[in-house]
Amino acid sequence: MDKLIISPAPHIHGGDSIEKNMRGVIIALIPALLVGFYFFGLGALIVTLVSVISCVLFEYLIQRFLLKTEPTITDGSAVITGLLLAMNLPSNIPFWMVILGALFAIGVAKMSFGGLGNNPFNPALAGRVFLLISFPVAMTSWPVPSPLTTSYLDAQTGATALSILQGSDLDIPAITDLLIGKMGGSLGEISAIAILIGFIYLLVKKIISWHIPISILVTVALFTGILHGSNPAAFASPMFHLLTGGLLLGAVFMATDYATSPMNPRGMIIYGIGIGIITVVIREFGAYPEGVSFAILIMNAFTPLINKYVKPRRFSK
């Protein structure tokens, strides 16, 4: 090179990139996905594929033809949105609904705000809630887990652990079933162990910090513990709350979404506590059996406020 390059310091870079982080999240999602594929079979596979492909496609089309910018689908964020959206859906949902959800997630919740990093709400959750409000029946008729089934739309449906709790008098599943995921529910939320494996992977790779998931889980455990302690007949045990519904999936993968969560540990903890409290309130006192997605979306709205008033620990106060 005939000309020397001049630039301000620092002259080296750590080599971290958006792609690396996104790839890490995708890898961390794999165990939970595999469990979903195992228990819900072909239906889960179809929903996941449709969701991922349509998310990527919508992002590409919007950037190419509407925004007229360089498409950034290679960074992997659309893939993650697709995966998370699918994991929050029942495996017997018609695929056109999935496409609609993907369109809302990418088109409205993500790209209309300026794409990756600028969206105030988690796109996958926004898509999910959009579907939940639009198609309440399809979104709450959960297939019963039957390993490696080939049924899709015709899957046998049953209740989730949480909806059992809310009204019906069926037996509550055993803790071991909850751990491995042998229960009804969205296709990615069922197995606590698989999600925890992903959580540990994310922590080891330093893709997320522990603050948000742990503060959510601790808050939920404490709050439900107090309720359970005061009236065991009316309120379920903390263990049950932790392992059921989308709590773990939400705490580990959705609440920790970079763009929509606070920017420093103190804020993250406040944010986590908020999600925990709202989740329990919706579950125990609200009309819906499940509250994680609403809780996260509500706290997403508070993130800018938290960022403004909660500052990181400064050097020397």
Partner: peptide, 19 residues
Amino acid sequence: PRMNEYDGVKHCFIAHNLY
């Protein structure tokens, strides 16, 4: 003629403060 290549933020003030 250009003698070197500036690779920082393309902003006069920043470049001026550097060199």
